[in-house]
Design a protein around this nucleic acid. Structure first.
Lengths: 336, 336
DNA sequence: TGCTGGTAGTTAAGGGCTTAACTATATAAA
DNA sequence: TTTATATAGTTAAGCCCTTAACTACCAGCA
């Protein structure tokens, strides 16, 4: 592989000149530029990124961090949509995405991840940071690496969805349809910040009609579809008079609907079920799912833009992205 | 940040000793090892990966390449499952995954990708390489970087699913249920190798009952759900006597089912629809989808294992992974 | 004329690690 | 006793690039 020196020799200039021409520094004659570029092309020169990284301290790699907590992060369709948003920005700016999935426990992240963060390999980090158990960005902040959080752990820069408002919209929708016997399939409060915000939203909306959230029948799942099934069994058996089920994500809602059907309840005639996230499948489900769109790709895209802003020395404002109620056929007016 | 030299000074040995102890070279007294490790711990030393890469030529980074052709790769749930398999192996071996999504056209891949491949950043590459338009691994092979293909482009090492056998199983299932008026929603042959293999499988099975595949009504989609809707409109309108629809992936099948319902056909009583891939949603769909499981996570995992084999100087055997028919409720015996 | 300041390019010092080549000692074999 | 060999550690070159500091030149101006 040709090196800078080869190019310099061929172009009849110093390596410094080549380096500077390539990084588009001013103060060079057009002629020198041409000479250098010609040599680069003739030799098929491509800079060695490791050398560049060592010498300049910039790797052009950003890490995208999806912590692994109680569930493989890859089973969540949201992950991909966020990733897609980030990818679009990175590829446009010539940055590379390193995908890291640290195992996160109360003791913090695993050693592999810690090493990676300390290794000097990363120009910046974007992390899904919403697990109360620990912050994936902690070691990143300690090392003073530019970082953007998607979520609720403390970070100078973050993007997040207005989860509380989303929860509020969802409950409001159900209440507007006349439901008062409402069951909740949630997530343990200490598992996920977004979940507890959504719960707070539910509580807020419920209180406007004098309903106390904590008195409503509720159970906990783990985001997965099967846990929605289990949750529905529990609630519908114990509280057969329920007319609506609010689930904190779409996959649990889909599980709940499936189980409701299996138990002879018809959705939505006989039972309203709503979810959260608007994953691609939600629209295709039978019945199509009423849910909250939290604009996941935008979340990723904005996080990436913010990070590049920080890398350029800016101090971008953190962002809260609004949510949108997507009413579909899984929710209906309470039967008289 | 402490460097090797700091550690060496503190431990009272040379930098070479530290380096070798850390990389677990033989010929050191237990005492020296302890001294070095102690100094490492006391200083919180973490090797600088860029320096290590520059000097050793190994970065501990492998690229996972999902080319971008006519559809954002992130909209395919398969992608994630493959990624999951790869991730499991990498994290276990302390390798990092760089996610790259080159834009692939007849002129080859985009410059960003080409640069990345040439940059010396990559110890190895795993690529989804099934697009006839171009091979994402071409530049990787040219550069003699160890690589494993998931797909059909030429590569010394590859894993692939037995797509033809899968197509065969799918058609056989439909034939066994007594269907003879069968419509196909496929993919243009020159779009995707796997798709054309699956078609070959359909053809093979059809011929065993004297049915000529090319005489069957067929149309083309692009893997997406909406294209399944369009395909179903086309086929069911023009050929109302069809009793079965074979779709080359699940998303198109789900679109087709949705459209069939909209047109007053009941699946499966009135129309059998089958898909391919067994994406997570397939089991949750209404009705649950009969499909082919191609073991995507294993595909990823095996590819990663193979790559690490190659990196260790082995010459692993390429692998063809069998497919499994998953009969569910979207297919039924042809009505008399 | 002498000075300032902008333009064009060079020199050379790192950046932090790996590793080939070497030295030095202890042990075993001849 | 000498020689070969395994063990234990060191020295220093090299990986390829960036960049601070420097030289050299020229135009403009008091």
């Amino acid at each position: 592989m040709p090196t800078l020196e080869d190019v310099a020799r061929r172009a009849g200039v110093s390596t410094a000149t080549v380096s500077k021409v390539l990084s588009n520094t001013p103060y060079f004659t057009e002629e020198t530029r041409q000479k250098v570029m010609l040599a680069v092309r003739e030799l098929g020169y491509v800079p060695n990124l490791a050398a560049r990284a060592l010498s300049s301290g910039r790797t052009h790699i950003i890490a995208v961090v999806f912590p692994y907590v109680f569930e493989a992060i890859f089973s969540d369709p949201l992950t991909m949509r966020i990733l897609q948003g980030i990818e679009a920005e990175c590829s446009q700016r010539g940055y590379n995405m390193l995908l890291s999935t640290p195992r996160l426990t109360v003791d913090g992240a695993d050693d592999n991840y810690l090493q990676l963060v300390q290794s000097g390999y990363l120009d910046g980090v974007i992390a899904l940071d919403s697990y109360p158990v620990a912050s994936a960005l902690q070691p990143v902040h300690d090392k003073k690496i530019p970082a953007v959080a998607i979520g609720y752990h403390h970070s100078d820069y973050y993007v997040r969805s207005t989860d509380q408002a989303g929860g509020c919209q969802l409950m409001q929708h159900v209440l507007d349809l006349g439901h008062r016997h409402i069951g909740i399939i949630g997530i343990p409060d200490d598992m996920h910040f977004s979940a507890s915000r959504r719960m707070a939203g539910l509580r807020e909306a419920a209180s406007t009609v004098g309903l106390e959230l904590d008195t409503l029948p509720h159970t906990y799942g783990d985001w997965s579809m099967p846990s929605g099934v289990t949750g529905a069994i529990h609630l519908l058996t114990k509280y057969p008079n329920l007319t609506a089920l609010i689930c904190l994500n779409d996959r649990m809602a889909m599980g709940a609907i499936q189980q409701a059907h299996a138990m002879g309840r018809h959705v939505p005639d006989n039972l309203t079920v709503v979810g959260y996230d608007d994953i691609p499948t939600a629209a295709l489900f039978a019945p199509p799912l009423t849910t909250i769109d939290q604009r996941a790709p935008e979340l990723g895209q904005l996080a990436a833009r913010m990070l590049f802003g920080v890398l350029n020395g800016d101090h971008p404002e953190s962002i809260e992205l609004p949510t949108y109620l997507i009413p579909r056929q899984s929710s209906a007016r309470v039967p008289d």
